[in-house]
Simulated scan of single mutants.
Amino acid sequence: MYTVKAYAATSATSPLAPLSIPRRDPLKHDVQIDILFCGVCHSDIHHVRDEFGSAMPTIFPIVPGHEIVGRVTSIGADVTKHNIGDIVAVGCLVDAESTCPHCRVNREQYSPTKVLTYNSPDKHGTAPATYGGYAESIVVDERFVLRVPGNLDLAGVAPLVCAGITAYSPIRRWGVTKGQKVGIVGLGGLGHMGVKFARSLGAHVVLFTTSPRKREDALRIGAHEVVVSRNPDEMAAHVNTFDFILDTVSAPHDLNEYLALLHPEGNLTLVGASAEKIDVSAYSLIFGGRSLSGSLIGGIAETQEMLDFCGEHNIVSDVEVIGMQDINEAYQRLEKGDVKYRFSIDMSTLKNT
């Protein structure tokens, strides 16, 4: 066991502050990683403030961070997938039983045995809970360590293993391809990745936003059209024309308006999680055979596929790089939507805190 510098919250009302945390020595299938960049996800804030309640109570102290990119510094005796010096990534998962039905079909994210990168019970007994990527280094089972294409900017790679795969997985599941018409609802951390993926797959991409000010940026990122969803005429012009719509918005909104835009047997997938009750008319689904579904990140194999796709198409997240000492301000800005479109922490700055 060894100790590293990290940033942690010690209570739901505490700011993130420096803390020394323990890490296990690498076991025979483990990879030890020096963390270079770590993305900031909105779920980090929810966990730090214990906002998931009894469904997922926070174990304090908590070290957030599940969008990790780093360099391999040590490997266990039986590791075969990675070598010292490799640039790798770690997303939301660090372990799961390989024999469960979900794991056998590469859907580890739905496994009842999954271990989250932070705030899960630590089966190794190193600490009360797993500690995430706001730290100097991390030790992870090689099965959950991902290869990073060498041509990509590492600060922009970090959010790919959460925001990226969350958008990519349903887009691939529903077979988005050249010639299809695809809608992306919301231009944030998830939405801007959805636009990039759908455009790269050859789809005609329409971005839905409540803000006309986002039109120019949406077109820059790759949207072919922008619809202001508060404008009923603009919405009506697209009724019954979409093959697939990815909804990334977590604020309450009327899903029936978007279901009406799908052509027969089209699909609307939710990845933006709202705590509010969702009201959907049965008629919105029945007439036209439309479907409504949800999606949670992606499995490890699919996440690797996504990274390889990003390498082939030179796709990264649009990020603002910050120092570790700026994290509390970044949380405040993230809650206001004041970032285009993800914060990425330069973890070398942790040494100066």
Rank of each mutant, 00 (worst) to 15 (best):
A6T: 07
A6E: 03
T10S: 11
A12W: 00
P15R: 10
R23T: 11
D25M: 03
I33Q: 11
I35H: 12
V40A: 00
H42G: 09
H47Y: 15
F52M: 04
S54P: 03
A55Y: 03
M56D: 14
T58I: 03
T58Y: 01
T58A: 04
I59M: 07
G70Q: 11
R71W: 02
R71M: 09
I75V: 15
G76N: 01
G76Y: 02
T80E: 14
N83Q: 14
N83F: 07
N83Y: 03
N83G: 11
I84F: 05
L93I: 15
E97V: 13
E97T: 11
E97F: 13
H102C: 13
C103L: 05
V105W: 07
R107L: 15
S111F: 06
S111P: 07
S111Q: 04
S111A: 12
T113G: 09
L116I: 06
Y118I: 06
T126A: 02
A127R: 02
G132R: 00
Y134E: 05
E136S: 14
V140C: 12
D141S: 10
R143M: 04
R143C: 08
L146K: 12
R147Y: 01
G150D: 07
D153E: 10
L154S: 13
A155E: 08
L160T: 06
L160Y: 08
V161Q: 06
C162F: 05
C162I: 05
I165G: 00
T166S: 15
A167M: 04
A167R: 02
Y168I: 04
S169K: 07
S169N: 12
I171P: 01
R172P: 09
R173C: 05
V176W: 00
T177D: 00
T177F: 00
K178S: 15
Q180G: 02
K181G: 01
V182Y: 00
I184H: 00
G186K: 00
G188Q: 02
G188R: 03
L190F: 01
V195P: 09
K196I: 12
F197L: 08
F197S: 11
T209N: 06
E216K: 09
E216N: 05
D217M: 12
A218W: 06
I221G: 05
I221D: 07
G222M: 01
E225A: 03
M235Y: 04
A236N: 14
A237G: 04
A237N: 09
A237E: 12
A237F: 02
N240L: 11
T241W: 01
F242I: 11
T248I: 11
S250G: 09
S250M: 08
A251E: 11
A251F: 03
P252N: 14
D254R: 12
L255V: 13
E257M: 12
E257G: 13
A260R: 10
L261Q: 08
H263V: 01
H263R: 15
H263I: 02
E276F: 14
D279G: 01
V280D: 03
A282F: 15
F287K: 08
F287G: 02
G289Q: 08
R290G: 12
R290Q: 11
I300K: 09
I300F: 09
E305V: 04
V316W: 02
D318S: 14
D318P: 12
V319W: 00
I322H: 05
D326P: 04
E329D: 14
E329K: 13
Y331C: 11
E335A: 10
G337D: 06
S348H: 14
N352M: 15
T353S: 15
